[in-house]
């Protein structure tokens, strides 16, 4: 079945809502407008305004409502337009969603699913384009998912809805139009493991989300030049799957982490640090990172382009390392 990333998520939402009447979607413009990125197009007609709820422009309010609904037995899918806007709801996410199970002595789970778009590449400038998933990966009590493939776009939402605790799903906005084959019976996927999606022996490209696709393109170029790159799709930024990361480190001894986020205090720093702590003697050279330029995301197209890793920068960096 040929399908886009956007459609895969929509199908997943639709299926979940058909199966379980406790599932509902809410967020800014998810109803009549069909979602800012058109993910929820047509769902209002199918499920009605009770279950596809347009909300006021107050992230703090509607994320909080989602958390409250989840605590009261519902299965809300809360859509936050971009990760930058999620900062308005950061208090709800951090101080409520992530902590209530702990603070209630294990009495209240918060099975909320919060989806948001992340990343640049659409000329949406410095207030809509950042990759802050690494920030949320900092917080105990949350699961942070970054689906890169159609299979994960569809399957991760299913698994997230089954999870008793808060799950954040970061959808890179440039992936929505990504089209490919997805088997008809694609269903739930695990939300704990990283995945080695391309086997290689010379270097490990550790990445997630849009970075995965750039690494695939880079690996093909490199393969033509005799460099055999392995690609690890992290999939889950919290909890990080140390075992699989260390497995690929052990195999190749060389690691390049590719991530659109800023390197300072970022998820790439965390991964690099874990490799150093647990895989030091498997390293044949220092762990290298490609991250976003440490500037607010530029608006100008050519500047935005060079502010994040691209296929050619990945290729160049790998060649430098080998």
């Amino acid at each position: 079945m040929k399908i886009t990333y956007r459609e895969a998520i929509r199908e997943s939402i639709r299926e979940a809502m058909q199966e379980d009447e406790k599932v509902f979607l809410m967020g800014e413009d998810v109803g009549h407008y069909g979602g800012c990125f058109a993910v929820s197009k047509d769902l209002l007609a199918e499920f009605g305004a009770e279950r596809i709820r347009d909300t006021p422009l107050s992230e703090s309010a509607f994320v909080g409502i989602g958390i409250g609904a989840a605590m009261n037995g519902m299965k809300p899918i809360v859509e936050v337009m971009t990760v930058n806007f999620s900062l308005l709801a950061a208090d709800q996410i951090m101080n409520n969603a992530a902590t209530i199970l702990h603070m209630s002595g294990g009495l209240f789970n918060v099975p909320v699913v919060i989806r948001m778009a992340t990343g640049g590449g659409k000329q949406l400038a410095a207030q809509h384009s950042h990759s802050l998933e690494g920030w949320y990966a900092h917080i105990p009590g949350l699961k942070v998912l970054t689906p890169a493939t159609l299979e994960d776009a569809r399957g991760m939402l299913i698994s997230a809805l089954k999870d008793p605790d808060p799950v954040l799903i970061f959808e890179n906005s440039t992936l929505y139009n990504h089209q490919g084959e997805l088997s008809e019976d694609a269903g739930a996927v695990d939300i704990f493991k990283a995945k080695i999606r391309r086997q290689g022996k010379d270097i490990s490209l550790v990445t997630y989300g849009i970075g995965y696709h750039k690494c695939v393109a880079a690996a093909e170029i490199l393969a033509a030049e005799g460099i055999d790159a392995e690609i690890l799709d992290l999939r889950v930024l919290r909890p990080l799957d140390d075992a699989t990361i260390l497995e690929t480190v052990k195999k190749t001894g060389r690691v390049l982490i590719v991530d659109e986020g800023w390197k300072s205090g970022g998820i790439s720093a965390e991964i690099s640090s874990r490799i150093m702590e647990k895989g030091f003697f498997d390293l044949d050279m220092p762990v290298a990172r490609l991250g976003g330029a440490e500037v607010p995301m530029p608006y100008a197209e050519h500047l935005e382009r060079i502010a994040v890793p691209q296929v050619e920068t990945i290729v160049a960096k790998v060649k430098e390392m080998i």
């Binding site: 800023w262 390197k263 300072s264 490609l290 991250g291 330029a293 060079i306 920068t313």
Partner: peptide, 10 residues
Amino acid sequence: FPPMEEPEIP
């Protein structure tokens, strides 16, 4: 701090 920028920055 070590610089964070990639050399491609114009």
